[in-house]
């Protein structure tokens, strides 16, 4: 598929607020990206017009009940069939921050056995509690499954900003070990929090900004086509978005966030 023909749907609803910069990131790669309100999608459009779907960051429906919960249920109720078809065709879905919370609440992630009717994990309130806006280091853990990080060397340390109050990835306590094993078995683990040198955070704040289980930053489904993460790649696309660019004599042209968008586009190009 030609790059210019790729169409990405950046979905939004009341409370979504990172849609513009997400769209910009795709456009910077010469891909068509459209911000679509879910009302619009339900009434006039079809998900199947798009090659990829993004749930951007924000506070959908004010994050009342649980972050992402209402939007997830809304999507399943109104767009469930279409979404299932979308997933079955292995069309990629990316969830950033609130988008990740939506994917988990909708049962799309971790999605051990296809789409789960109930959430199999949760993005719980941070520990230490409260909203936290800071830059973190994350280490790439995926062998080859995740199409959003494919060809990024395993073990590579990236730097991205987080900004959330509910990002502590957890499994049910009694299934924790077993679920983690499955993540590894299926090559679903994508990023873990670490320090500058790539040493795992081991739950220590602030390297692990939210107390996430096993320092989990983001995971994909067993097929590698659905990916959710708490940090914001769209906020570290350009060099001047880095927190310390004024310290460097020479900055790389882009930030690490670009990699995620690039890998997705490259996958779509090859997919045909």
């Amino acid at each position: 598929m030609k790059r210019e023909d790729i169409k990405v749907c950046v979905l939004r609803v009341g409370g979504t607020n990172c849609d513009a910069e997400t769209k910009r990131s795709f456009e910077e790669l010469s891909v068509q990206a459209e911000i679509v309100h879910v009302n619009e999608l339900v009434k006039r459009r079809s998900l199947m017009e798009y090659n990829a779907l993004v749930f951007p960051g924000g506070f959908s429906y004010g994050d009342y009940v649980r972050a992402g919960a209402i939007w997830a249920k809304w999507i399943l109720a109104k767009l469930g069939k279409e979404l299932k078809a979308f997933v079955e065709e292995n069309r990629p879905i990316l969830g950033i921050c609130n988008g990740f919370q939506v994917l988990v609440e909708a049962g799309l992630l971790p999605g051990f056995e296809e789409i789960s009717p109930y959430p199999e994990a949760a993005l719980a309130t941070n520990f230490p509690p409260g909203y936290n806006c800071r830059w973190v280091y994350i280490k790439h853990e995926n062998k080859e499954k995740c199409i959003f990080t494919h060809k990024i060397p395993k073990g590579k340390v990236l730097r991205m900003p987080v900004a959330h109050s509910e990002g502590r990835f957890i499994f049910a306590k009694e299934k924790e070990k077993q679920c983690l094993e499955r993540l590894y078995e299926n090559d679903q683990l994508v990023f873990r929090y670490c320090d500058k040198n790539g040493e795992y955070a081991e739950g220590e704040f602030p390297a692990n900004p939210n107390g996430s289980f096993h320092d989990i930053v983001g995971i994909c489904n067993p097929e590698g086509t659905i990916f959710g993460l708490m940090p914001h790649p769209e906020r570290c696309f350009y060099w001047w978005q880095q927190p310390d660019w004024t310290r460097r004599e020479r900055m790389p042209q882009y930030g690490d966030g670009k990699l995620i968008f690039e890998r997705l586009v490259s996958y779509l190009e090859k997919k045909g």
């Binding site: 936290n132 806006c133 978005q241 927190p243």
Partner: peptide
């Protein structure tokens, strides 16, 4: 300061 999002919109050059 860290409880305020200062990076949303991706346009904060000097934080």
């Amino acid at each position: 300061i860290r409880t305020y999002d200062h990076g949303v919109k991706g346009n904060t050059v000097l934080k």
